[in-house]
Amino acid sequence: MGRFSKMHGLGNDFVVIDARAGDVAMTQARARAIADRHAGIGCDQLILIGKSDDADVSMQIFNADGSEVEACGNATRCVPLFVGRDVLIRTKAGLLDAKSVDGGASVDMGAPRFDWDAIPLAYPMDTLTMGASWEDLPAPAAVNVGNPHVIFFVDDLDALDFDRLGPLIENDPLFPARVNVNFAQVVGDNHIRLVVWERGAGLTRACGTGACATAVAAIRRKLIAGPVTVSLPGGDLTIDWAPGGTIRMTGPATHVFDGEADWSRF
């Protein structure tokens, strides 16, 4: 039997498995089965916390479809709560420093990347105002914050059909690693409303890396100044970034319950 915790950040929910005492063999099929909300435990992402040679812990992240991804901001905020102290975390996106704050955590998410091949895109293109768009959407920006994001700034967020546009853009050949799709509306001097179609998970209550990428893109376009409040369906995150620096994300993290499961049954 293996122990796990059910946690969430702004409603973006996780099954967090402690693999520090012994490896937990995780395949795409097993991750998908655990994430299934009807036949499994149910989550947006499955998180494996393991040992690390150069950090306090390592973190592996699997989407609900079983695909492994590089980064997840909301899950990163849950790690110090899960471990019980401030932690340096080794991820596929690099080293992340997560510190506990009242009600959640503050995480240094590293420096954003803007080169077309770092997103990655299929061919060279300006990533601040991309020479591509879809239907009536304006030209987006692209940012990599450990994982790939495309951001559309629109005048009326409520007028969009996210369920149709999200998968259309996520799976476009322009994005060889697929992409997280962010639909954003600037609603104040330091305030953005955001809805995210997450790669491999679909519409989500909140996406921490999406909030980071969107705030960075808005600051680069001089639409807004930081620190930025990003309001997602699940609640608010605070994102602070200055050009040339790293991104600081602050927001809630919640422990729901602990449980045990036989992973070989999934």
Results as ranks from 00 to 15, higher is better:
Ala111His: 01
Ala111Ile: 00
Ile219Asp: 00
Trp134Gln: 11
Ala105Gln: 05
Ala141Leu: 01
Val186Asp: 03
Gly66His: 08
His38Ile: 04
Leu95Ser: 06
Val143Tyr: 03
Cys212Thr: 01
Leu157Gln: 05
Phe14Asp: 13
Gly84Gln: 08
Gly234Tyr: 06
Arg193Ile: 00
Ile219Met: 09
His149Arg: 05
Val228Asp: 03
Leu121Ser: 07
Ile219Pro: 02
Asp161Ile: 07
Gly208Pro: 03
Arg20Gln: 15
Asp236Arg: 06
Asp56His: 10
Ala105Ser: 13
Val196Arg: 02
Gly40Met: 10
Arg90Val: 00
Asp189Gly: 04
Lys222Val: 12
Arg164Gly: 13
Cys212Val: 02
Asn12Val: 10
Pro233Asp: 09
Asp86Glu: 04
Pro140Cys: 05
Ile219His: 01
Arg199Pro: 05
Arg265Ala: 11
Val216Arg: 00
Pro138Ile: 05
Val15Asp: 13
Asp13His: 13
Ala55Leu: 07
Asp136Ser: 14
Met130Gly: 05
Trp197Tyr: 10
Gly22Ile: 06
Ala213Glu: 03
Trp241Pro: 00
Gly73Arg: 00
Ala98Asp: 07
Ala98Met: 08
Gln60Ser: 14
Arg37Thr: 11
Asp13Lys: 13
Asp54Arg: 14
Asp36Trp: 06
Ala132Trp: 15
Ala21Cys: 12
Ala93Ile: 06
Gly210Cys: 05
Ile47Leu: 15
Asp23His: 15
Pro233Ala: 08
Asp126Val: 02
His191Leu: 11
Met59Asn: 08
Asp97Ser: 11
Val83Cys: 07
Asp86His: 04
Thr246Leu: 00
Thr238Met: 08
Ile34Thr: 06
Ser264Cys: 03
Ser264Pro: 00
Asp44His: 11
Leu168His: 12
Ser264Val: 04
Gln28Gly: 12
Leu46Val: 15
Arg205Trp: 12
Ala71Asn: 10
Leu96Thr: 03
Gly131Lys: 13
Leu10Ala: 09
Val195Trp: 01
Arg265Cys: 03
Ser106Tyr: 00
Gly2Lys: 14
Val87Ile: 04
Asp262Lys: 07
Asp262Thr: 08
Asp156Val: 11
Thr91Tyr: 05
Leu46Cys: 10
Thr246Ala: 07
Val196Ala: 04
Arg178Asn: 14
Pro112Trp: 03
Gly188His: 04
Gly66Ile: 06
Tyr123Met: 15
Gly103Glu: 06
Ala184Cys: 02
Pro138Trp: 04
Ala159Arg: 13
Thr27Pro: 02
Gly103His: 01
Val181Ile: 06
Thr229Tyr: 03
Glu70Leu: 09
Val230Cys: 03
Pro138Asn: 03
Thr76His: 01
Gly166Pro: 12
Thr204Gly: 05
Ala122Asp: 15
Cys72Lys: 03
Ala177Pro: 07
Ala201Pro: 07
Asp44Thr: 11
Gly22Tyr: 09
Ala215Pro: 02
Ala132Gln: 13
Lys6Trp: 15
Ala253Ser: 10
Phe175Asn: 10
Leu88Gly: 04
Val16Tyr: 12
Glu68Gly: 05
Gly50Trp: 14
Val154Arg: 02
Asp189Leu: 09
Ala105Cys: 04
Gly42Arg: 09
Thr204Met: 06
Asp56Leu: 06
Arg3Trp: 11
Ala184Ile: 01
His8Asn: 12
Met249Asp: 00
Arg220Met: 10
Glu170Leu: 10
Ala132Thr: 13
Met125Glu: 10
Asp97Trp: 03
Met130Lys: 04
Arg248Ser: 09
Leu10Trp: 04
